[in-house]
Every structure is written in C-alpha cells, then in structure tokens.
Design a protein around this nucleic acid. Structure first.
Lengths: 184, 184
DNA sequence: GTCTATAACCAGATAGAC
DNA sequence: GTCTATCTGGTTATAGAC
C-alpha cells in the first residue's frame, strides 16, 4: 500500500482536523504539516485554491462515499433492519460530524441533505403501513411510528458519535427493544 | 424594562453570535458592535479578559439557567411526561447548541454533562421497571426501553434544533405515539 | 466606562528559486 | 511540486485621553 498522493493526504488531514477543531480553528499551516508538507510553505495552494475550497472538496468526497453505499433492501426482520440502519449511520459519521460542526456554513448543503434523506428513506412509513395492513404488526399511526424509529436511531447514533463511544445499552439490544416496541 | 447593562448585552450578543458562527468565527469587534459599543474599541475588555473568558461566562450562565429549572415530577400519563420532556429540552436549546458547535473545546464540560444528565434522569429505567412490575405496562427490557425513549426524544429535539423548526410529525403526535409504543 | 489609536501577532495567500 | 521568503489583511489586546 503506497503512500497516497499529496492531494489525498491533504484531504485526509483536513477532514481529521476539521472534525476535531472545526474549519475555522484549523490553519492551512497545520494542514500542510499533517500532510507531510513544510508548514508555512504555500505548497497547499498547488492543490487547492483556498481553505474554503478544500472544505468543499472534503465534503464532496464524503458525500460521494456516502452515496456509493448501496442500501440493502428490507432484510428479514425489523431488528435486523434497525441494526443495519445503525451501521449505515456509522458510515455517515464523518459527514454527519462535518454537518454538525460546520452547520449551515457547509457548501452543497442541498446535496448533503438529499443523500442523508435517501439513506433514511428505507425507514419509510409506507413499509410500516403495509405491514400493519397485512396484520404483521399492530395497527398504529404509521407515520408517527416511522418518525419515532427514525429519531431513536439517529439519536442513538448522534449520542455515540458525540461522546465518542457507545452510550447506554449496546446497539444489538437497542435494535431488539426498538423492534419489539414496533411489533407489539 | 430598562436596557440591560453592558456586561449582559455582551453576554447576550456573544451567545447569539457563537451559536450562529461558532466562537472561532466571531471577532471581538463584532461582539462590541452587537452590544452597542464602538467596534474596534477595546471596551469589551473592560468587562472580560478575553474571548475565551466570555465564552466561559456564556456557558456558565446557560448552565445556571438550565440548573435552575425544576423538573416536574412524574405527571399523569406517559404522553404528558414525554411532552414535558420535549419542552424541557427546548429550554436547553442554547446550551445544547453551544455544546454541539464548540464540542470538546467548551469549558466546564463536566458541569454541563452533570446538568444534562440530571435533566435526563427523570426518564429513568427504574420508573419504567416499577410500572412494568405493577402491570401498568407490558413487561420488557426496562433499561432498553428507557434508552429508546431517551434517544427518540433527544433525536427529535436535535433534528428540530438543527433544521430550525419542527421535523416530521408534530410533538404532540410524537409523544402520543411514543407513549403508545411503550404502553402496549 | 467608552472612546480613538495603535501595537503585536497570526493566518491566508503569493512570488520566485530549485 | 516543494521549498524559502514575504506581502497583506484582519484580530486580539493594550495605551491613554475624556
């Protein structure tokens, strides 16, 4: 595994530092240093026009990575579905981290939102409504249940992401309990 | 209602700007301007030693406000409880916003965590376990259910906070559905 | 306590040699 | 493509008059 090229090393370093300190708190000098370039040299600028430019490129790359992921279609049971969703959220972690730290300042916010929405689409109220109609799960406000499930999963993920580790019960147990609350 | 004193105006302005842009992105000049002082004058420094100092003071004030709030003890029904919890989270919004934007850079992080934990304590697994034992709600993994409830509420709140408005179903409906999922 | 003025510093970005 | 060196602008923070 050869050393990645300079552009890639800059992107990797920038992502890491932006997540740790926010883009405002990171000097181009520090990015150069982290990428193995001489700090203070303008070598960074042979690859990106500005710090905003590299932020946009970092976001683009993360969105691309997120978009590439194929969403597995409805698995066997609900608990499995929810566990898979938590894993999918894991993959989105760097992107979500950027979103949280940079807020509305992020470029391409529309595209980011689209990709996140697509990832969340599988937790659709329609699927729940169909299962309710089929009598597989109890009749309830399908849209409301979908909303509860979505926010429970996202909340669990955000807490783990924010505190840097698992919070509360582990994810298998979490998915199991959540499924049981939907199913009965 | 007289105009607040300068120190208070500085704190108010700093909170607003920090939430909007993050503390790194806010110049002391801008805080002075927002507080009705002449931008570029060092008048700010008659009240705070530095920008970090005012950040600490802003956090302190928000934590104090959060700590002052009395948590209403277990109300009549679960849905009412959950609705009250969402309102309590609303009050914490500025503090949570700071936490999200500033991350680990925040001073007094321990105290912040303590206050937030206290606010969340009412969603205790013990209460659920007692109701399960009393036969009021179905027997389930009480700790797991408490975790799901907590993250659902927090997730709902964070999404609303982040996107600047209600997301998905309204909170009454959300609380009602969540309660029904716990109760049956 | 607020102002004008300014010092000291640091970060973003560029020039030109190699 | 990377380096040394530097320009430039903006930000923190201070000095001293009022």
């Amino acid at each position: 595994m050869a050393r990645p090229d300079t552009r890639t090393r800059i992107l990797d370093t920038a992502l890491r530092l932006f997540l740790a300190k926010g883009s405002e708190g990171v000097a181009v000098t520090a990015i150069e240093e982290g990428a193995g370039l001489s700090p203070g040299s303008g070598s960074f600028y042979r690859h990106f026009r500005s710090k905003d430019d590299v932020l946009a490129a970092v976001v683009d790359r993360e969105v691309d990575r997120a978009a590439e992921r194929r969403v597995v279609p409805g698995a066997s049971d609900l608990a499995g579905d929810y566990l898979a969703s938590l894993s999918a959220l894991d993959d989105l972690r760097p992107l979500v981290g950027l979103l949280i730290r940079e807020g509305a300042r992020l470029p391409h916010l529309d595209r980011v939102r689209d990709v996140l929405a697509e990832q969340g689409a599988r937790l659709d109220a329609d699927v729940l409504a169909a299962r309710m109609a089929a009598g597989e799960i109890p009749q309830r406000d399908a849209e409301g249940v979908a909303s509860v499930v979505l926010f429970a999963l996202v909340g669990h993920h955000l807490a783990a992401s924010f505190f840097g580790g698992p919070v509360g019960v582990d994810r298998e147990r979490f998915a199991r309990v959540l499924a049981s609350m939907v199913e009965s």
